[in-house]
């Protein structure tokens, strides 16, 4: 008994002691040297920015990049309140937000999607507007077969919805939806499962899914095809810049990060997330 007590005590001193010692020395210095970047905002951008953050961390080992989602509005609010160093907004800055600094890191386009079996090849902006406001309720009104239209809309608060409403000069109250969806994938699955449905989602996601055999078709808008190329060239009408937002002109670590996010070093990450990098 006394031996075993002694044995375990010694063991503890030799094993735990050095650990505590090391921790007591390392911890304050690690805290002093390590810097943390807090980035919040758009859930569209969060996966991309956190990938960029991981790569940034490997280049700057003492920096920790902390990415949280919550929507573009929250990203901007957090930046204004100083809760975040950088905000993510998947849209251009609004007029009342011009005092903030926005740096575009990539583009995203929204595309109208139909079921592959739908013979309608193109819709004008007015036709889309009349479908979404419920004045056209049958595909025969817009040159399609005689069957009712299923309108798929996005839930409130999503920036995709905001951009869509903005482009078509609509308010959410005007829209007569049959289905309200949350994320892009749910929208694509809903349209793929319903030959009479019309919806709108991010081009990156839609193009990827359409290329991988999911039954949706991307619709051209104003005769401009919905592709990554037209979005990159800024020709596609329904597209949005993915913006990093700061309260004051970027400096120090924040500037280093934004420069990195705009550099060709992260193009592969942007393409992986089906967004469109700034330069081809």
């Amino acid at each position: 008994m006394p031996f075993s007590t002694f044995f375990f005590f010694t063991l503890r001193v030799f094993l735990v002691g050095p650990l505590l010692w090391a921790w007591a020395w390392e911890y304050p210095s690690a805290r002093a040297e390590g810097e943390r970047l807090i980035i919040t905002g758009s859930s569209t951008m969060a996966p991309l920015v956190s990938e960029i953050g991981k790569r940034f961390e490997t280049l700057h080992p003492k920096v920790r990049v902390d990415v949280q989602t919550g929507g573009s509005s929250r990203g901007i609010a957090d930046t204004v309140n100083g809760l975040a160093d950088i905000g993510m907004a998947s849209r251009a800055l609004k007029s009342q937000e011009q005092h903030l600094n926005g740096s575009v890191i990539a583009h995203d386009g929204i595309t109208i999607i139909l079921h592959t079996s739908n013979p309608v090849q193109e819709l004008t902006d007015d036709q889309i507007r009349s479908i979404y406001t419920g004045s056209s309720t049958n595909w025969s009104h817009v040159g399609g077969p005689d069957s009712g239209i299923t309108v798929v809309n996005k839930a409130e608060g999503r920036s995709t919805l905001e951009l869509f409403l903005d482009y078509f000069h609509l308010s959410n109250r005007d829209i007569h939806a049959h289905v309200v969806i949350g994320d892009n994938e749910q929208g694509i699955k809903t349209v793929a499962g319903n030959p009479n449905a019309i919806g709108y989602v991010s081009i990156g996601t839609a193009q990827y899914d359409a290329a991988h055999g999911i039954g949706i078709r991307l619709l051209a808008l104003q005769h401009i095809p919905a592709t990554l190329e037209t979005v990159r060239e800024g020709r596609f009408p329904l597209s949005r810049p993915l913006t990093l937002v700061t309260k004051s002109p970027p400096a120090g670590l924040v500037k280093t990060f934004i420069d990195f996010a705009q550099s060709p070093q992260v193009h592969d990450l942007i393409l992986q997330q089906y967004f469109v990098p700034l330069q081809g």
Partner: peptide, 17 residues
């Protein structure tokens, strides 16, 4: 439900969901 049931109901009585 989304992939199987909703399309079946949609064919019978649109929109389905």
């Amino acid at each position: 439900g989304l992939m199987v049931l909703v399309p079946i109901i949609g064919r019978w009585h649109p929109p389905g969901p």
